[in-house]
Amino acid sequence: MSRTPNSLVVGIGSSHGADTIGWQVARWLERESTAHWDVKLALVPSDLLDWLDGRPALTLIDAARLVESEPQTGLPVTFATEAEARGSVGIGVAEHDGVRNAAAVEVRAERDSSTWWPRVTRMSWPDPRVVASLSSTVHDLNLAQVLQLADRLGWLPPRVELWAVHVDSAPESGLTDEWISRIGRQIAVELRAWAEEQLAATGGSGAAGGPLMPRDPTTCDPSEYTGSAGQGNA
């Protein structure tokens, strides 16, 4: 019996500064388990085009920052929501008409001025916030362009999730191991839940990698995880 390939987790970034976040979280997920997902590290988004080989799902983890709109162009802010652009804490956009899974996830807002806490936004392709960034760069191919190209070629899996870790005010030391693992656990919970759904839908034969791990309730603090697909957030 042929087995469905594992889903693919891709950390996008580099080994430098806050840009390491995508790689660090992806490596955490690789250490955690490779039963249901394979992990790759991309330096540039176009790397993805080499790896979309019939995978059922794609999870992307990338550092994100708020970009001021360029006055000359009036281009939208990359990865930013209106609420963020106004400077409020957290993610304000819960849904977009006609776009599945557009709800945003806030892992944790800033608690106090002395401690930096990461904020994580989860988006599902096609998310207008990602699509909006299509023309906002002078670099050759940004992530949104790569996803759109793959979409045009029919290469995108049905499920594409982007976890954007906001690094605007990240300290030079970057994220702590604690926060890398918190973000990693959150993604793992999502991936396992999705794999369970797939397994159930295929009568237990669709997913590769043996029995699924049960959800670990300690990895998901309801007070911090305030949204899920289509549910909006607090």
Partner: peptide, 16 residues
């Protein structure tokens, strides 16, 4: 290239 992929998908796939 996205627009090119719409017009010539097989060429772009071959290139990639």
């Amino acid at each position: 290239g996205i627009e090119l992929a719409e017009r010539f998908p097989d060429v772009v796939k071959r290139g990639l």
